Simulated assay, not measured.
Amino acid sequence: MATTSTRLSKQARREQLLDTAVAIVRAQGADGLTLVTLAEAAGVSRPIVYDHFGTRPGLLLALYRRLDERHRVAIAQAVQDAAPAPAEVARVMSTAYFACATDMPELSAVSAALKGNPDMEAIQHEMIDSYTDLMAAALLPHSGLTPEALRLHCVGVLGAAEAIAAELNRERATAEDAVTALTDLIVGGLDTRTDR
């Protein structure tokens, strides 16, 4: 095995390993990702991979967090760039959500591989809270709902978004139809009549 002439910092090595892990999951599915296959694909010794992730669930959890963070950043950027109108915010949010869902199928594969893992449940709760807060903050200026009611609406919309994404990934809906459906769900529940 060839060795690299430059030594990476611990953080740079972790990023390289996670990049390689994404490539493995994309090519072989989550079942193809182990600490051994990662070490071989990255061209590093097994102890380096074990030092970074400890166990296969540790690797999968780190990969899931990384993919989820990229997903959130993309949605936050899209919302920030949207025109300040409820339908536009909802459309941009929906478009970004489904772009990430289809551009990062690894997220679903890793999530499925972690089913039953107690740490995964905690991460998923964090993720839902983060998305809910992001969505509610973006929609609050356009809603006649109380912040509490809007937050609950966003929780429901995210559940619907996940179900629609599953249909999209199974090719039972087009991206355009998915965006339209989610946009309509978001806007339809905003209660924009603030003059009451």
Rank of each mutant, 00 (worst) to 15 (best):
M1T: 08
T4C: 03
T4Y: 09
T4W: 01
S5A: 08
T6H: 06
L8P: 00
K10C: 00
R13H: 08
R13N: 11
R14M: 09
R14D: 12
L18E: 14
L18M: 14
L18K: 13
D19P: 11
D19C: 14
A21F: 12
A23P: 11
V25T: 13
V25P: 13
R26G: 05
A30H: 04
D31F: 00
G32W: 05
G32E: 11
G32F: 05
L33H: 11
V36N: 06
A39S: 15
A39P: 13
A39Q: 13
A39Y: 14
V44K: 10
P47W: 07
P47H: 10
D51A: 15
G54Q: 04
P57T: 06
P57S: 09
L59W: 09
L59Q: 09
L61Q: 12
L63I: 15
R65A: 14
L67D: 05
L67V: 12
L67M: 08
D68Q: 10
E69I: 03
R72I: 00
V73S: 01
V73D: 00
A74D: 00
A74Q: 01
A74V: 00
V79Q: 01
V79P: 04
Q80F: 03
D81I: 00
A83I: 06
P84K: 01
A85E: 13
A85T: 10
A87G: 08
A87L: 08
V89L: 02
V89D: 01
R91S: 07
V92P: 02
M93C: 10
S94M: 03
T95M: 00
Y97G: 04
Y97I: 01
F98E: 01
C100Y: 06
C100N: 05
C100F: 05
T102E: 05
T102M: 00
M104V: 12
M104W: 08
P105T: 07
P105D: 06
E106T: 15
L107S: 15
L107Y: 12
S111N: 13
S111V: 10
A112N: 12
L114Y: 06
K115M: 15
G116F: 00
N117A: 07
N117F: 05
P118G: 11
P118H: 07
E121N: 06
I123T: 04
H125T: 06
H125W: 03
M127N: 09
M127K: 07
D129P: 01
D133A: 14
D133M: 14
D133S: 15
L134G: 02
L134N: 06
M135V: 07
M135T: 11
A137W: 02
L140A: 12
P141Y: 02
G144A: 04
G144C: 10
L145R: 14
P147H: 08
P147I: 03
E148F: 12
A149M: 14
L150F: 06
R151W: 08
R151Q: 14
H153T: 02
C154R: 10
G156P: 09
V157H: 03
V157Q: 00
A160C: 09
A161T: 09
A161I: 06
A166P: 08
E167L: 02
L168C: 03
L168F: 01
R170K: 04
R170L: 04
E171R: 11
R172G: 05
A173P: 03
A173M: 10
A175M: 04
D177M: 02
A178V: 09
A181S: 14
T183L: 07
D184Q: 15
I186R: 02
G188W: 13
G189V: 00
T194N: 09
T194R: 07
D195G: 13
